[in-house]
């Protein structure tokens, strides 16, 4: 009684595309709302520090570079909640799509 259904299943799966993708060569499409690496728009930022104050993971520090205070996101600490984007009054933080964030040094983990 169970053999016919078994055969049907076998046939259906023989012709099916695999459920997996070959990752480094093939990538799954990301959703519109995906939260990847930050994109900081320096021209918009006025250095108010709201993102640093609100960050749940304490990943953002305000640094003064050439007289302009602006945030630095430490991706090693970041939990990618994007509360900073929600809270930035100037829209200076944007969600990026980049998710391959591994790096050889900690310095490269900081988004400026």
């Amino acid at each position: 009684m169970r053999l016919p259904s078994l055969i049907r299943e076998v046939w259906a799966n023989l012709l099916k595309k695999p459920a997996t993708v070959k990752y480094p060569f093939e990538k799954l499409p990301l959703s519109k709302t995906y939260r990847g690496k930050h994109e900081l728009m320096r021209d918009r930022c006025v250095g108010c520090g709201l993102c640093a104050k609100i960050c749940p993971a304490f990943a953002i520090t305000m640094r003064s570079v050439y007289g302009k205070v602006s945030p630095e996101v430490d991706l090693a600490k970041c939990i990618f909640c994007y509360q900073c984007e929600d809270v930035c009054p100037r829209g200076a933080i944007k969600r990026g799509k980049e998710y391959e964030l591994a790096s050889w040094s900690r310095n490269e983990m900081i988004v400026r």
């Binding site: 918009r44 006025v46 108010c48 930035c88 009054p89 100037r90 829209g91």
Partner: peptide, 10 residues
Amino acid sequence: QPKAARKIGD
């Protein structure tokens, strides 16, 4: 205004 809430302005 650069220091105003430009996210709203957008």
